[in-house]
Design a protein around this nucleic acid. Structure first.
Lengths: 132, 132
DNA sequence: CTCCGTGCAAACGATTTGCACTATG
DNA sequence: CATAGTGCAAATCGTTTGCACGGAG
């Protein structure tokens, strides 16, 4: 994998953001440093960077994929109102090897635990609306 | 909600299938009974039926949404090769109310545990390929 | 110099929508 | 007989791809 200029900028911006951005959110940010970059390049590189293990592709509920700068194993929670995504640190006590074997006739390759909820910001917004 | 002919057929076919069909898989089946039905109607009704709690909308990894005739709480496992989806019956010991409260500043509305793997059929196919 | 990577525009697949018509309650 | 639901086609949204050109190794 060649480390091109656009690849570096994309990776830097995602890491800098500390958020779970969609391809086009990241595109908007990257464009500020590199106005001629194309959305297709952002998509292509996010794919390549996640294959290389430098970032993590997330397929959370909702339409758009999001990308996580943090490549360690962890879960996510997303806001059903604004669709932002945050990291979670949870122990998975009950999901042990034994449990997995009992589950089904599938050969299990992985699993995902994903929480949904209302983020603090949206909670605030909602209570303000109620006041009016 | 009016119980139209198309709504009945859609619901019946989904229940009959015992599978987790996508909108257009279901469309293909429903067309046999009702050749003039449109894909848009299938989409609209699947949405309405899931809002009414008669079926369950699934947002599993991958592109298309799938619909589950079974509205009880349960988890899913999907095949990373053929994308079929099956039900799972698991106890969620570690995901108790207490755990949820500790998780984050979100107000949690739900969670989803989703397994990925290779289904028995694809395992068979794979071992046949290896033989050649 | 050799290709991998890029920008652009066009194609794509899944889903949604505007509209005039139809049929349920 | 009012209005929720339908069929059709076009629109939309996120993402991918073909192609000719450009730059990293």
């Amino acid at each position: 994998m060649r480390m091109t200029n656009q690849r570096e900028v994309i990776l830097r911006e995602l890491r800098k953001s500390r958020q779970h951005l969609t391809a086009d959110e990241l595109y908007e940010r990257v464009k500020k440093d590199m106005p001629r970059i194309s959305l297709a390049t952002v998509y292509r590189n996010l794919e390549i960077l996640s294959e290389a293990g430098l970032i993590q592709k997330l397929e959370i509920s909702g339409r758009q994929k999001r990308f996580d700068w943090d490549t360690t194993v962890h879960d996510h929670i997303y806001c059903v109102q604004c669709h932002r995504v945050d990291n979670l640190e949870l122990e998975h006590k009950s999901i042990s090897g034994d449990t997995l074997k009992q589950i089904s006739s599938y050969e299990i390759t992985g699993y995902r635990l994903e929480f949904a909820g209302i983020c603090p910001e949206c909670k605030k917004k909602n209570s303000k609306k109620k006041e009016n």
